[in-house]
Write a protein that binds this DNA or RNA. Structure first.
Length: 579
RNA sequence: GGUGCGGUAGUUCAGCUGGUUAGAAUGCCGGCCUGUCACGCCGGAGGUCGAGGGUUCGAGUCCCUUCCGCACCGCCA
């Protein structure tokens, strides 16, 4: 037996016991005649003490036997801080090179270095907590969905490329020269086929692949909680997964979330928050003030389609320098605003704005109040095309929320966004795109517009779709699907996908729908993001054991990498990369 | 594809308008230390300043090219 106990479990009550522990040497502190060693495993750290210096180095793997004794000087910061183990025998199981960075709560290593030695970084407590949370959440999901009658069914990874949407990762087929599998961007079509097959409650915690550029919250391979249900309406789906989220929060974090989870239409989200994934932990809503400011001779406003404002609480004391800095901030290409108009609504009730020469103090005050400002607030105004300006105000709102400390990661404000437009018109391509995906059904009451040929009708069709949003992050989304072949071909028509094209890309599902497809719908959550948000982080990398870097590379195993000519030939591949 | 920031000791960083032998902290090695837990004290080793080119009497510092990392925009139905 390598060990009788872990390094995290011994307490004062264990004093007197003879134990054997095994683990990694976190640190050895030599004090002349005696040496303290911190021994670490994933359960904790236990202090060892000896009068002989065993000569062990950091990260050596050792096994020791000794007696648990009460410490002379206790450490209240450690769970095991009341005891130590008096070493009787040391057995070095494996020596170790000095690690390139410290294996501690806050490592001294940079991100690149830690990525290269991911197996060392994973020894650190924050990473171990992150993966433990991920495990806990996965267990909660499986338990809940199992209780609700869902079956976990695996779907294939080697599938067919469907060039709508994200770029596919492709895999060459050796047995079928010149053809390629694609890795799934999601198991979307398979889960719908499972509904046709009668598995009326399906789920899968499943890897998905998208060959697009990475972000802090985006990896080329990521994990979805993928779900689908038959004989349901939107309400059933929302209730089922609201229950799942509630249970996850309660059991993994001990947090009670809002009941019921509030719902907001996509149009309200855009109008009030300038985002389809609003952070509702704080107010500071966007207010349109066009009617109040137009026609007073300020040409910038007069020529704008939309003028909107937010009220930054308590910021009336901002200096000219701070406001200039904020103006520069919104003018950066990432935001893209033309400028920023401000109103200081001073605590004495007076107002001061950057457009005072165009408006009376009464008018300025009216605008401030329309923006929801109280005395002491700073009103920030932007103008331009409606949706674009709202989006910019939304970005500014989030930034001000950050600056004012309104975005506490330990506060959780979930939200359903509903009533999305079904279709989005692309001026560039002069065609409609599915806002969600081409299997999303229109709301039943909007079906007459869906079959209309007028662009205005099609634009106002709402989808039977919904997104789950938490603290300004989209964690998941789904829809009620089209289950009739006729409506599906109408959708392909609207999207300008030819019969031949639809047959080539989606023939299997159109065909399946001819054989008795039940009404169905579902959704998928981004599991990595769920984990990160539950853990209070914005980056998902710490919640993935072996993530990729910004360039999609795994610097530890050095992938992707070249393959030799034999492999290339076998797969009928020719390189066009210049050496 | 684009924007910004960064690359200097094992590690994290400082290094001013170009000017002696490139520094600090930490880690590492050695010595002292019996209650440490960020132990303390003394000493030591440790550098292709990401790479290549250019300007200059002289480049870590300025210019060009390039590679790498992070964040963001585009992209992600």
């Amino acid at each position: 037996m390598y060990r009788t106990n872990t390094c995290g479990e011994l307490r004062l009550a264990d004093a007197g016991k003879k134990v054997t522990l095994a683990g990694w040497v976190q640190k050895a502190r030599k004090l002349g005649g005696m040496t303290f060693i911190d021994l670490r495993d994933r359960y904790g750290i236990t202090q060892l003490v000896t009068e002989d210096d065993p000569g062990v180095g950091r990260e050596w793997v050792i096994q020791i036997t000794g007696e648990v004794v009460e410490r002379q000087s206790k450490n209240p910061k450690m769970p095991t801080g009341d005891i130590e183990v008096k070493i009787e025998k040391v057995n070095v199981l494996n020596k170790a090179q000095t690690p390139p960075f410290t294996i501690e709560e806050n490592s001294d290593g940079g991100e690149d270095l830690r990525a290269k030695y991911r197996y060392l970084d994973l020894r650190r407590a924050p990473l171990q907590r992150a993966l433990a949370l991920r495990h806990r959440l996965a267990q909660e999901i499986r338990t809940y969905l199992d209780q609700q009658g869902f079956m976990e069914i695996e779907t294939p990874y080697l599938i067919k490329s469907t060039p709508e949407g994200a770029r596919d990762f492709v895999v060459p087929s050796r047995m079928n020269p010149g053809t390629f599998y694609a890795l799934p961007q999601s198991p979307q079509t398979f889960k719908q086929l499972l509904m046709v097959a009668g598995y009326d409650r399906y789920f899968q915690i499943v890897r998905c692949f998208r060959d697009e550029d990475l972000r802090a919250d985006r990896q080329p391979e990521f994990t979805q909680i993928d779900c689908e249900m038959s004989f349901v309406e939107q309400e059933d789906v929302l209730n089922t997964f609201e229950g799942m989220m509630r249970q996850m929060f309660k059991n993994a974090l001990g947090v009670e979330i809002a009941n019921p989870i509030p719902r907001m239409s996509w149009y309200d989200a855009m109008d009030k928050y300038g985002s389809d994934k609003p952070d509702i932990r704080f107010g500071m809503e966007i207010h349109e003030v066009s009617e109040l400011v137009k026609g007073c001779g300020f040409s910038v406003f007069d020529g704008s389609e939309y003028i909107g404002a937010i009220a930054a609480t308590g910021c009336a004391e901002y200096t000219r320098k701070q406001i200039d800095e904020l103006t520069e901030w919104v003018k950066r290409p990432q935001v893209g605003a033309k400028g920023l108009v401000y109103i200081k609504y001073n605590s004495d009730g007076s107002v001061k704005s950057s457009v005072d020469k165009f408006y009376t103090p009464e008018q300025v005050k009216a605008v401030a109040e329309a923006a929801g400002a109280k005395e002491g607030d700073l009103v920030l105004i932007m103008c331009g095309p409606k949706r674009k300006t709202q989006t910019q105000l939304g970005v500014l709102r989030i930034e001000m929320g950050n600056r004012l400390g309104y975005r506490d990661p330990s506060v959780f404000a979930p939200l359903w966004i509903v009533d999305f437009p079904l279709l989005e018109w692309s001026e560039e391509d002069q065609r409609f795109y599915a806002m969600h995906h081409p299997f999303t059904a229109p709301k039943p009451e909007h079906e007459q517009w869906f079959y209309s040929d007028r662009k205005e009708d099609l634009e106002r069709v709402c989808a039977n779709a919904y997104d789950f949003v938490l603290n300004g992050t989209e964690l998941g989304g789904g829809s009620i699907r089209i289950h009739e072949a006729q409506m599906q071909s109408r959708m392909f028509d609207v999207l300008g996908i030819s019969k031949e094209d639809a047959e080539y890309k989606f023939g299997f599902i159109i065909n399946a729908f001819k054989f008795g497809a039940p009404p169905h719908g579902g959704l998928a959550f981004g599991f990595d993001r769920v984990c990160a948000l539950f853990g209070g982080q914005e980056t998902i990398r710490d919640y993935i054991a072996f993530p990729k870097n910004n360039q999609g590379r795994d610097v530890m195993i050095d992938s992707p990498s070249k393959i030799d000519q034999v492999q290339m030939d076998e797969l009928f591949l020719a390189s066009t990369v210049k050496e």
